[in-house]
Amino acid sequence: MKQSKKIFCDITKCVACRTCELACAIEHSATKDLFLAMLERPRPRARTFVHFIERDVSHSIACQHCEEPPCMEACMSSCISKDEKTGKVDIDRSRCVACWMCIMVCPFGIISREAADKNKAFKCDLCPDRECPACVDACPTKTLSYETRDDFSRRIKQEKKVYEKK
């Protein structure tokens, strides 16, 4: 099967600036404008998260669009599906009943509850309106990338060689 693109994080480059979170929240706001989005109620929320791994080491993580998504198996209204072509795992919010079974089994803890909007689960949707997810485009240190797993591992191997020479 052809590998599909997803968001990768190069931990060595992350400076915990949280620009990804901001870009994500704006992209998923009604106005898609930073200043107007701040005034929206409920306030738009990010679907990607910056975590500290240890002091001064951080990463940004969102839905991994798993090959075998546990959330999809757990969803009792069958509202979570995986697109065979794009690999994207999507929640059909019209059928979400807020049972939180997806949250219960997500190995990464990146599904959130949206209490304001009739109680639905939400997570990274890879920005359907954009070619490249907003967090990736916004990342000032190029920590985040949108590519296939093979491309990612090839690239970081190459970059590591270059850096180690210096």
Binding site: F8, C9, I11, E54, V57, H59, C66, E67, F108, F152
Partner: peptide
Amino acid sequence: ARPEYNDTCATYSPLY
């Protein structure tokens, strides 16, 4: 076992 676990930590090397 999940390949996604490796995706998330492939670039991590402990500082300390």
